[in-house]
Design a protein around this nucleic acid. Sequence first.
DNA 1: CGAGGAGTTATTCGATTGTATAACAGGCAG
DNA 2: CTGCCTGTTATACAATCGAATAACTCCTCG
Lengths: 213, 213
Amino acid sequence: MSRKAFQRLSQDDRRRDLIEATLVCIAQHGLHGATVRRIADQAGVTPGLVRHHFGSKEEMIRNAYAYLVGQLTTEASERARQARGAADAQLRQFLVANMTAPNLSEEKVSLWATFVGRVRYEADFATIHREGYREFLHLLEALIEPVLIDHGLPHDTATCRRHAIALNGLIDGLWVEGSLNSGLYGQALLPDLLLDASERLLGLPANTLSRSH
Amino acid sequence: MSRKAFQRLSQDDRRRDLIEATLVCIAQHGLHGATVRRIADQAGVTPGLVRHHFGSKEEMIRNAYAYLVGQLTTEASERARQARGAADAQLRQFLVANMTAPNLSEEKVSLWATFVGRVRYEADFATIHREGYREFLHLLEALIEPVLIDHGLPHDTATCRRHAIALNGLIDGLWVEGSLNSGLYGQALLPDLLLDASERLLGLPANTLSRSH
DNA sequence: CGAGGAGTTATTCGATTGTATAACAGGCAG
DNA sequence: CTGCCTGTTATACAATCGAATAACTCCTCG
């Protein structure tokens, strides 16, 4: 019986392949069903590779969590950055990015929830969550402040932070429920609803976010 | 070697004991670590009992999920019902109930997230989630409408529903992030922030929710 | 008080898991 | 073209899992 033919990949490529295979397995079968054998199978390699590149299954999964969080915030901040217009337009794009594909995805929400469920009891997950949360909050604060300034609203640090916390909560909640109940909503409802709600939360004139750009 | 002395419980009591033991195990060790043996150990019985009362481990876990969802919505709606004042006060209590113990709990959020992570890929979990979501949304709508009426605001069905979706998202998001990052916030911050944000979302005069009752 | 049955325990089994180790082979240095 | 390093495969192993079965005991009912 001959050995399986295989391809040699760069360390980065192989690691990324394994991480993405891990995410697929966790989404479809849960953390309990994401076995080393299944991950390897999904990636088209043999189980030994997981250990070779990540040392242990737990380390493999930690890397997958960090990878997911990075994907989510990078996508949103990138979309905001590309809106090279007024502050309104940047905030708008950031918000919309979280209510549309690829971030609005049942698979991504499932993964996020699965990991978040472990944050309380596993220190490494808590670290990844905390850093991701802080980064997201800072991005949001930085986007909110110039908008408040443009409209002549109070924009002290405490106010910005408070708005960011509320807005972040609203984004998270709509993102989760919107993805899981995507069948119930039209595709345009969620972005529209978030923009509308954000204007109210920040005290902006109606349609400043909805109409910008 | 003598057999372990044991106590005979009513079916309801034993099932509840097992369900709560299951939730403890899932919270602490995740779905993958909630083994029949560990659950039985947590409940102070032997593994066979799980099968005897629930048929299989999966059925056991489904019951635990439904139990958790029921706990959360019952607590919030009960607190709202007990505020026998104006509509403002009832909505206020409903909101506050979700930002304070026992609902605001790292353990409960961890459990909720763990289960939600499976909603996409397991039909039974999807059913439990969907029913819970609809019930929560209806409760919220029913609480919002009279408040809008009292303040002379538009209160057609579509408007109420839209407000309920946004408010539900805000509650969920703050609930999750607030519980997981409870160390970062003072105990009074979250309820206060949610009430304030809810007033803005619904277009109510400032302090109508914060000051009622 | 003393059977009978349902609730509970004890024990076992095949399957699957994460990990360890040795054998193999692809592709770059010389 | 040819070693040789290391990415990769193949195989094995102890531990643990969910489930099944049989034995036992608490409690109810007559």
